[in-house]
């Protein structure tokens, strides 16, 4: 099977969907002529031309809203945010328009838009550029939220997101763009709302997503080799819709749960998971649900300290050993 980067996987998904459906348009700042701020869209302009690959001005509210409006008439825009951090200036368009027009129209409209871009810390760009808004986005019924961790997942999920008739918020990660993984040559789709057990184990379940899931897998190896602990890692992949059944099934096997998320803890995705697990599998738990999150402060710049603010394998190992 070919091995490609996460970045290439996203690009291949875009190219295949552009090829398949003439309504698909890729838009965003620097996506066309500049080949993408993170080179995700490299070569797409040359291949698909300026009608399909469109450079926008720095107007997130304007162009995201424009994409929402165009999608109401059947265009399928895939909008790139250079950083998901910039969602804040477009937030009215996302939550009041993308998320709400279907409801406010009594179901007469749907909004088949994808908004994608990186949402992560770890690149020493400070508080304004390190937001991870998946919990904020998922708080709005009407939108779907996806956070892929691997090249395989990124490609299969993005293709599904583009075909989805609801607005999908697709959160990538600049720290993962260079990661490599096996991606089949032939076409495949991964349904939204399906978690993936990325490692099987018997003593503890770690539920995670995005880059924190990759860290969790590293931690699980160390927990096995150094501490003899057999850890199962469940990668949610989608935040909304949410595959809670896979989480519950894992907890029923291991009876212990640690949630690891690159998220500020207050009202995080993990808070929601913890609520659901205690509600639906209380008797299965042999220990309180534990959680490891980003340390609760704006993103610090200082490079060595930022590593410690985020979930990392060492912090995860410690948290796992404390989940008993």
């Amino acid at each position: 099977m070919p091995v490609i980067t996460y970045r290439e996987a996203v690009r291949h998904a875009l190219a295949e969907e552009l090829e398949r459906d003439p309504n698909v348009v890729v838009m965003g700042e620097e996506v066309a002529q500049f080949n993408g701020a993170y080179k995700v869209t490299e070569g797409l302009l040359a291949r698909f031309g300026p009608k399909r690959i469109v450079d926008t001005p720095i107007s997130e509210a304007g162009f995201i809203g424009m994409g929402v409006g165009a999608s109401m008439l059947g265009v399928r825009p895939v909008m790139e945010l250079m950083f998901w951090s910039f969602y804040s200036v477009a937030f009215d368009q996302i939550l009041n328009n993308a998320a709400n027009v279907r409801y406010m129209s009594g179901g007469q409209i749907n909004v088949p838009i994808v908004i994608r871009g990186p949402a992560n810390g770890g690149t020493n760009v400070g508080a304004t550029h390190s937001h991870t808004p998946e919990n904020v986005l998922a708080n709005h019924p009407g939108v779907k939220v996806v956070v892929p961790a691997t090249p395989y997942d990124a490609k299969g999920l993005l293709k599904s997101a583009i075909r989805d008739n609801d607005p999908v918020m697709f959160l990538e990660n600049t720290m993962l763009y260079g990661d490599k993984g096996e991606v089949p040559e032939e076409e495949y789709l991964i349904p939204l709302g399906k978690a993936d057990v990325k490692r099987q184990g018997t003593d503890l379940t770690i539920v995670s997503y995005g880059r924190a899931a990759i860290h969790s897998l590293k931690a699980a190896e160390e927990l096995q080799s150094q501490h003899g602990l057999s850890v199962e890692v469940v990668d949610l992949r989608s935040i909304r819709p949410l595959d809670i059944d896979t989480v519950l099934a894992s907890v029923r096997r291991t009876h212990r749960l640690l949630i690891v998320e690159e998220q500020k803890p207050f009202c995080s995705v993990g808070s929601q998971i913890a609520f659901m697990v205690q509600k639906e599998a209380f008797d299965e738990l042999d220990a309180p649900i534990n959680r490891l999150a980003t340390i609760d402060a704006p993103a610090i710049y200082s490079p060595p300290v930022e590593v410690e603010q985020l979930p990392n394998p060492a912090r995860i190992v410690k948290a796992a050993l404390a989940t008993r």
């Binding site: 989805d164 399906k194 989608s238 659901m276």
Partner: peptide, 22 residues
């Protein structure tokens, strides 16, 4: 909770899995 998601309103055409409402 109707008219929130196109997919939830068109279950026979739904492709995603998992819970949409909480």
């Amino acid at each position: 909770q109707k008219d929130v998601y196109w997919e939830a309103d068109n279950p026979e055409q739904r492709k995603s899995e998992g819970r949409l409402f909480f």
